[in-house]
């Protein structure tokens, strides 16, 4: 099967900084769920944004960076407008900041749909309401007319998911989709996202700092450290991680019912900065 996303040796340098934020990252994505894990500042969100081509001032270099037949390195912004939001979309961390506060939730979903699909307003509304139903919102007609401040965080995030999946994209990038949510609703939102991604056969890139989350909701995991890919693992074999950084991250996590002795602490090695994860 052809990969949806094929990235070879991607490096990203932000304007005004000497060091690249991401260097030599390579991976491919099929119709699967791929997790990218790392500490803050490791460049995981930067990779996500680069795929969406949202970093207009940063310097991107790569041997290859394609999304289906689109060459992401050389595509014009006009081409990207057709791709972004329609064939690939992104779910951001906090619905409080990613929804427009002065527009009704449903209107925003319908607008996103009408940007890419030619149809009447009534049709778009109909599709938006159906989509709200699919993300398990009980009273979609009512929520359609609510403003973002009137809905809870979990519901806001489901509105975001509805908006992003309505155009039936092939690729969804979820950047910390649940870290702003309470633990009681986190699973529910993840299950909804997971269900839709599986049903529709969407390729998912899940960016997260939470190893437990990717373990449960991804097929494959990339581990990033200081802008580099240090390891690629099957999610179910996360425990067999070879790289000391991955092992350290796993061990540093307090576990419910775990021993209460001191948690193990990462002993950062300079040699990790030279390590190269094998191409996935």
């Amino acid at each position: 099967m052809d990969p949806i996303l094929d990235i070879r040796n991607l490096s990203i340098r932000y304007q005004g900084s000497a060091e690249p934020a991401v260097r030599n990252v390579s991976f491919t994505l099929g119709r699967e769920r791929l997790g990218i894990v790392g500490e803050s500042g490791s460049g995981k969100s930067t990779v996500g944004r680069a795929i969406m081509r949202l970093l207009d001032t940063a310097e991107l270099t790569a041997d290859k960076m394609t999304f289906e037949e689109v060459d992401l390195l050389n595509a014009s912004e006009r081409q990207m407008l057709k791709v972004r939001g329609q064939r690939m979309s992104m779910i951001l961390q906090d619905p409080k900041f990613s929804l427009n506060p002065i527009q009704r939730c449903g209107h925003q979903i319908a607008e996103a749909y009408r940007t890419h699909v030619r149809c009447t307003k009534a049709e778009a509304r109909q599709r938006a309401v159906e989509m709200l139903e699919q993300v398990h919102i009980r009273d979609p007609e009512r929520v359609y007319d609510m403003y973002p401040h009137e809905v809870s965080g979990g519901m806001g995030q489901r509105v975001m998911i509805a908006m992003m999946l309505l155009t039936s994209p092939d690729l969804v990038i979820a950047d910390e989709p649940t870290s702003a949510l309470d633990v009681t609703i986190r699973l529910q939102v993840l299950r909804i996202l997971d269900g839709l991604v599986r049903d529709k056969g969407i390729g998912l890139v899940m960016i997260s700092h939470d190893l437990n989350l990717v373990r449960a909701f991804c097929d494959r995991v990339l581990i990033m450290y200081a802008g580099r890919l240090v390891e690629t693992l099957d999610a179910k074999h996360l425990d067999r991680a070879q790289h000391p950084y991955t092992q350290g991250l796993l061990a540093a996590q307090p576990r419910i019912g775990g021993p209460r002795g001191p948690l193990s602490v990462l002993d950062r090695q300079d040699s990790w900065l030279n390590a190269q994860g094998e191409v996935a």
């Binding site: 500490e39 633990v183 700092h209 540093a252 996590q253 307090p254 001191p262 602490v265 990462l266």
Partner: peptide, 30 residues
Amino acid sequence: VSVQAEVLNLLVRLQKEKGFTYLMVSHDLA
């Protein structure tokens, strides 16, 4: 998480050494 481990270890050690009473808010049951 990696930094959290350091700070939690520090808090545990300080409590042992200095006998603090902690009232701690957290959303993380672990």
